[in-house]
């Protein structure tokens, strides 16, 4: 992983560049001035305890919520000043799949194809459906799909336009073991193909397996940011311990934030 550039620097060649991002809900600071970058092919693991500000961060990255302060660039497009161009580059897959009740599996994909102008949609859709085991559900409405199938459809919608930025919020929720394995493979394959990925998950083994660097949040603030080795180098007292131990130590009450 390359961390030659500090997140304080300009976005440069990063696909995702977050600078001093702050999100307020009234007077409550859910995200407090965080900065990070994700380059092509990198997978950033966004981890933290419940209420740490992960989902707020991801929603700001995806353009669902407006940052109270700071900037978010996706593929060098500012998500606030140039949202359409930024959103063309990204796919956001939330933990709870949002689908239209009255569109079938196939119609969801056609809808997305039109919105993103996917020229080769006819060729891509069958492959994607096969990859996610949805081929026999083409004409099915979301109401008749299981939780896992809905999640797969949301993933298919996210991957159809071949995004260069993939934002995943607990992507394995509801998937069966085969689905989990396939999804892990898909994320790894996408990253190898040059997609910048941000992955938020409580499954630390998944984070350890896929992520090239970590961003640990606690109460909206950055506790640690960097590769696992870099974090251990900064925290020698944690050397030799598992990611789970590192995570629990760093996010425990009284743990010191990274200055």
């Amino acid at each position: 992983m390359s961390v030659g550039q500090s997140p304080r620097d300009p976005p440069g060649n990063y696909m995702i560049a977050v600078r001093e991002l702050t999100k307020l809900y009234g007077s409550f600071k859910a995200v407090d001035s965080i900065s990070f970058d994700v380059g092509p092919g990198e997978v950033l693991g966004l981890v933290g305890p419940n209420g740490a500000g992960k989902t707020s961060t991801l929603r700001c990255l995806a353009g669902i919520m407006r940052p109270s302060q700071g900037t978010v660039s996706i593929g060098r497009h500012d998500i606030q000043s140039d949202p359409v161009a930024a959103k063309r580059e990204l796919a956001f897959i939330p933990d709870e799949p949002h689908l239209f009740d009255y569109l079938t599996v196939q119609e969801h994909l056609r809808f997305i194809a039109r919105l993103y102008g996917v020229v080769d949609a006819e060729q891509r859709i069958p492959g994607l459906l096969a990859e996610l085991e949805l081929t026999d559900k083409l004409e099915t409405l979301p109401g008749a799909l299981s939780r896992g199938m809905k999640q797969k459809l949301a993933i298919a919608c996210g991957l159809l336009h071949n995004p260069s930025v993939l934002i995943l919020d607990e992507p394995l929720t509801g998937l069966d073991p085969a689905g989990i394995r396939k999804m892990r493979q898909t994320i790894a394959d996408r990253a190898r193909a040059g997609t910048a990925v941000v992955l938020s998950s409580h499954l630390l083994n998944l984070v350890e397996e896929l992520c090239t660097k970590l961003f640990i949040l606690r109460r909206g603030q950055c506790v640690e940011y960097g590769t696992f080795d870099e974090i251990l180098a900064r925290r020698p007292e944690l050397a030799g311990r598992s990611l789970e131990d590192v995570f629990l130590t760093l996010t425990a009450d009284g743990a010191q934030d990274r200055s």
Partner: peptide, 18 residues
């Protein structure tokens, strides 16, 4: 939507560009 409705039935064509 009828809660018993499981499949969409006939659809309307939509080009992927435009």
């Amino acid at each position: 939507l009828d809660p018993e409705m499981k499949s969409g039935g006939r659809t309307i064509a939509l080009a992927s560009t435009g």
